[in-house]
Each structure stands twice: as C-alpha cells, then as structure tokens.
C-alpha cells in the first residue's frame, strides 16, 4: 500500500514533466533533449527564491512559468524555427533537432554549473508527515501531486475544449492540412513548444520540494520523460498520464523491493518492452 501511494504520487509529478515534453515532441514536432535542463532550471529558481526570501515553491511557479514560456519561445524562434524551414524531410529535422537540443542541453548544464556550482541542492519545505489511507507521506509530495493533477487537468481541458487547443491538436495530426484551413502552423508550433517548456519548468519547481537535484541531473529526467511519452503514445495526453503513473509505481517498487540504484534500469527495461511489443504506445493505433 505504501509503495502504491508513493508511486502514484511520484507518477503524478512525472506526468506533468512528460506532458511538457509531449507538447514539444507530439505537437511542435521537436524532440527536445534539453527538456530535463529546463526542469532543473525551474528547480533552481524555486530553490534560490526559497533560500533568498522564503518564497513558497508554489508561488514561484507563477513566476517561473511565464519566464520559461518566454525563454522557450525565444529558443524556438532563434534555434529551431530556422531548422524547421531548412529541413527537407521529417528525418532531417529530427537529426538536426536532436543535435541542436543536445547542444543546448550541454550549454545549459555548463551555464548552471558555472552559476550554481556542482553541488546537490535541496531545501525542506512542507516536510511534515501527513496520514493518508493508513500510511504517512510527506506533505510536500502530496502538495506537488495535487498541483500536478490540477495543471494536467487544465491542460487537458484547454487542449480539448478551446479553439487554440484544437488548432494545436490539428498541427500535431496533420501539419500540412492544418495550413489549408487557415492555421498559422509556425506560430502555433512555437506556442506549443513554449508552453511545453513552461509546463516542464513548473514540474521542476514542484519536484524540487521533495527531490535532491544537481546541475547535471537533467538528462535523467529527459530520459524518463521520453520513456513516458513513447510509452503513452506521442501526442496522447491520456496515455502520458497513465504511462507516468505506471513508471512512478514501477520505480517506487524497484527502489523499495530490490535496490534504489536500479530505478533507471527498470524504466529502461519498461521502455524496451514497449518498443518490442507496442511501439505505437499504449493507446496508439497501428500506423504503417
């Protein structure tokens, strides 16, 4: 029972992070390997504001999200937009995007190392225990989970009920046809990319309340988010949430039953299984 609740709580936060990547890869069609660094940057912001002025990480989010949105918008405009224009095929764009975002991720790590140093950082916020369903859990994990659920829910509604949301889903499904019905694909792709960055940074700020991070942990989160997105199906919000919860459960299970050092190995095995048996994702339909 302990394992299940802890796993679900962790999975909720993972869902938020993976949702950010899904917006970037599924909707804007940019495989952003610098995603984890955006998370760490969000976490750093929360850490720093908490240390400097005792600002609650949940208030930091209000500041971090717009900043991350602007930053990712700029990244898309400066680095990725030209690649989209230059690419002759989807494959070419993929290779270029992978190399560019790897580059950006290393640059980000380099800058963060220079500014904050290589130490692990953590702070204690809301770290009193809360009794729930016969077990006790950290209030910070619970609060992060609730916030993640709220944000995921809002995103889901926005994507499925609003007009811009519908346009974004349209460019995800058929970018060429979307242009024919008067959708500004370039602008919306930038919007989706920036929004994805903002969501990831928010996830970072939330996760920093209960996990210890350092400047170079970003890549681990990128990997986890990728596994979740692919497992849930690229561009599929529902699938992402389910996959994130599954990963959270699996990691918690492996960490408590076998060895905490094997969490990534477990995630990786899950990924391999998915690749072998359902490469289209849990809910994806088979395409050619």
């Amino acid at each position: 029972m302990d394992v299940i609740v802890t796993g679900l709580l962790l999975g909720g936060t993972y869902a938020l992070i993976a949702m950010g990547l899904n917006l970037q890869y599924g909707m804007a069609r940019i495989m952003n390997l610098a995603n984890g660094e955006m998370l760490v940057a969000g976490a750093f912001a929360a850490f720093w504001l908490y240390g400097a002025g005792q600002v609650s990480p949940f208030l930091t989010v209000v500041l971090v999200a717009p900043l991350a949105f602007a930053l990712n918008w700029a990244i898309y405009m400066v680095f990725l937009g030209p690649l989209v224009k230059r690419a002759k095929s989807r494959g070419q764009l993929e290779v270029d995007a992978i190399l560019t975002t790897f580059g950006l991720s290393f640059v980000a790590v380099g800058i963060m190392l220079a500014v904050f140093g290589g130490d692990y950082f953590s702070y204690s916020y809301l770290s009193f225990p809360v009794a729930l369903l016969g077990g006790t859990y950290g209030a910070n994990r619970l609060a992060a989970f609730v916030a993640a659920v709220a944000i995921c829910g809002a995103l889901y509604l926005w994507l499925n009920r609003s007009r811009p949301g519908m346009s974004i889903r349209a460019i995800a499904v058929a970018p060429d046809s979307a242009r024919l019905v008067g959708i500004d694909v370039g602008r919306l792709a930038a919007l989706a990319f920036a929004l994805g960055g903002a969501v990831t940074a928010t996830g970072g700020a939330l996760i920093s309340t209960f996990l210890t991070l350092d400047a170079s942990t970003g890549v681990l989160f990128t990997l986890k988010a990728l596994v979740i997105v692919i497992m849930g199906g690229v561009g599929d919000v529902r699938g992402t949430v389910v996959a994130a919860l599954m990963l959270g459960l699996l990691e918690t299970f492996v960490a408590s039953v076998i060895d905490p050092g094997l969490t990534l190995a477990a995630a990786y095995l899950l990924f391999v299984t998915i690749l072998l048996f359902r490469p289209q994702g849990l809910f994806g339909r088979k395409t050619a």
Partner: peptide
C-alpha cells in the same frame, strides 16, 4: 534488432540509456 526497425528518435533514446542501464546493473 530491437530498435532499427523504428524511427531514429527511438534509436537515439535507446542507445543513450544503454550505457546507464548496463552501468546500473554492474553497480548493483
């Protein structure tokens, strides 16, 4: 055999994780 039938992105992620995977197994 596991990845090369699929698109390039899967391959990148798979190979990126491989070293870390083996490392964790050996450490364990």
């Amino acid at each position: 055999l596991a990845t090369l039938r699929l698109s390039g992105v899967y391959f990148v992620i798979f190979t990126l994780g491989l070293a870390e995977f083996i490392r964790q197994i050996i450490t364990w």
